[in-house]
Computed example of a mutant assay.
Amino acid sequence: MNRIVAPYITMWSAEQDVPCRVIERPGRGIGYVNEILTDRDARGVLWRQTTGRQGLGRPEFGKVHPLRQRQAMDRLLCQVCGGPADETQEGVLFLLRDFRDDWPRWPEGMGSTEPPVCLRCVALSLRLCPALRRGAVAIRVREFPIAGVRGTLYRHGLLSPVTDRAVNMPYDDPAVRWVLASALIRELRNCAIVPFEEIALTPVG
């Protein structure tokens, strides 16, 4: 395996948003002026379009590439290396910030934009990710339906649609037609926390 410089879903400085003008489509929400088929997902939601130049320039660790995040969540790929995520009879492996104080049985029922991971990349993530160093939990998830998108909600404007706010929007909400999506959400169900001692933390170099 090649040395991982940045997670698979991370944006690089050479990658930029494609300039697409958002317009209102009466009765159908928002769209692009020169829209093509691949601008929307299989459920008809419009997506932010970003060039794909992974590995060029420098990694921008605070930013996530919309298409690679969507691919990783849709295909259950490791968010770090882009290979298949670890899956056993106990479920798919996710590595999350520890928010167990947020509500009882966390993260049961949570909508997550964090793709899963493979065993090989757990140790690397714990070592290099500042957020995870503040507290992380490994979780096996048995049910993980695609639930919706995270993105920018638009509303009707005088001349053209205007941005409203950032939202997490379920696919079954009619307002999702007004969202410009940037991340795919899976709902985590039937979750079990896995002690790190039970995971073979294979270093990646």
Rank of each mutant, 00 (worst) to 15 (best):
C191K: 06
V45D: 02
D164C: 02
T113C: 07
V122T: 09
L93A: 13
L180M: 09
S112W: 15
V92W: 06
G135Q: 15
D101F: 04
I30G: 00
G205S: 07
R40F: 08
P115Y: 13
I146H: 15
P116W: 05
A123D: 08
L184W: 12
W47M: 02
Y154M: 00
T88N: 06
D173G: 05
A192E: 14
M11A: 07
R177N: 05
C78N: 08
V33S: 07
F144N: 07
V194I: 06
T50L: 02
D41A: 13
D74C: 13
E143I: 11
G83V: 13
R134L: 15
G83H: 09
V176M: 06
R3I: 11
H156C: 01
W178M: 01
G82P: 10
L184E: 11
V194M: 05
G135L: 15
A147E: 10
W12K: 03
E108D: 15
T202E: 13
L37S: 13
C129K: 15
E15V: 04
V45M: 04
P145E: 14
A166G: 07
G55E: 11
E143V: 13
A72F: 11
R165F: 00
A136D: 14
R155D: 00
T38F: 09
D98S: 09
T50N: 01
E15P: 07
V45S: 07
G52A: 12
A192S: 15
R177G: 02
H156F: 01
D172W: 10
W47N: 01
T10Q: 04
I4H: 04
E143P: 11
P174L: 06
D102L: 11
V64M: 04
R186D: 11
P161Y: 01
Q79W: 13
M73L: 11
R21T: 00
C121A: 13
L76E: 06
Q54R: 14
G157K: 00
L46A: 02
N190S: 15
G109F: 14
F99Y: 07
W12P: 06
A42N: 08
G62F: 12
R100P: 05
R177C: 08
A166T: 03
D173F: 09
S182F: 02
G111M: 09
R3D: 09
L56E: 12
A42D: 14
R165C: 00
G111S: 15
Q71Y: 11
D164Y: 01
N34G: 12
P107Q: 03
R25A: 10
Q89G: 10
Y154P: 00
L119T: 13
L201Q: 14
M110A: 07
I4V: 12
A138K: 13
R155F: 00
A85T: 05
G157Q: 00
I30Y: 02
L93C: 09
P66N: 12
D101R: 02
D39Q: 12
A175M: 03
V204T: 12
I30C: 03
A183H: 10
I193G: 08
L180D: 04
V80C: 10
D17N: 09
D74Q: 12
V137N: 05
T10C: 05
G44W: 04
I185L: 15
D164V: 00
V80H: 15
F144C: 09
C118V: 14
P161M: 04
H65F: 11
Y8M: 07
P195W: 09
V141W: 14
M1G: 15
R100K: 02
P161H: 01
L95V: 06
L184Q: 12
V194D: 04
G44N: 14
T10H: 03
